[in-house]
């Protein structure tokens, strides 16, 4: 069952960086596509809603962090195929993105980031004049 293995990838610990939380961290799967003058990023973050997600932009590094509640009650784990943990992934943005107009929504465990292109980066048609 190779397909079962693919869904969640755990983040590797970066060299020289120590985590301050003893949670597992997963790299969310993303789709990135461009439509017209906007770039969209979709990330699968099951267990995360708008309150438990953090999106930061520092210079050109966009970091998505999602925190997942891990309710530990008095239960026995009977069968387990996935682990619960936080999500984190960083992206380097190009200068094309208008940083002030980035928008984010979360619904049904999917984060959608809207990254509009900056005015200067928009594709322009250059009229060719005949002389």
């Amino acid at each position: 069952m190779a397909e079962l293995e693919v869904q969640k990838q755990e983040a590797e610990e970066m060299e020289g960086v120590e985590r301050t939380r003893t949670r597992r961290v997963f790299i969310p799967k993303v789709d990135i596509y461009e439509e017209g003058e906007t770039v969209y990023l979709l990330a699968d973050v099951p267990g995360v809603d708008q309150e438990s997600i953090d999106i930061t932009l520092e210079k050109n590094i966009l970091t998505i962090t999602g925190f997942v509640d891990d309710e530990m009650e008095d239960y026995g784990l009977a069968y387990s195929e996935y682990r619960v943990g936080d999500y984190e992934r960083t992206f380097a943005l190009s200068d094309e993105v208008d940083r002030r107009k980035i928008e984010a929504t979360v619904s049904d465990g999917v984060l959608k980031l809207t990254l509009p292109k900056a005015e200067e980066a928009k594709a322009r048609k250059i009229a060719v004049r005949s002389t």
């Binding site: 869904q7 979709l42 099951p46 008095d74 784990l77 009977a78 195929e81």
Partner: peptide
């Protein structure tokens, strides 16, 4: 990758609880 959601099953004294991660579905 093929969408093959994963299951967790937990059990307490009086109930069985199954959770499935299904991001992007309604």
């Amino acid at each position: 990758s093929v969408f093959n959601p994963r299951l967790n099953v937990t059990e307490t004294e009086n109930e069985i609880e199954a959770t499935v991660e299904l991001p992007g579905l309604s």
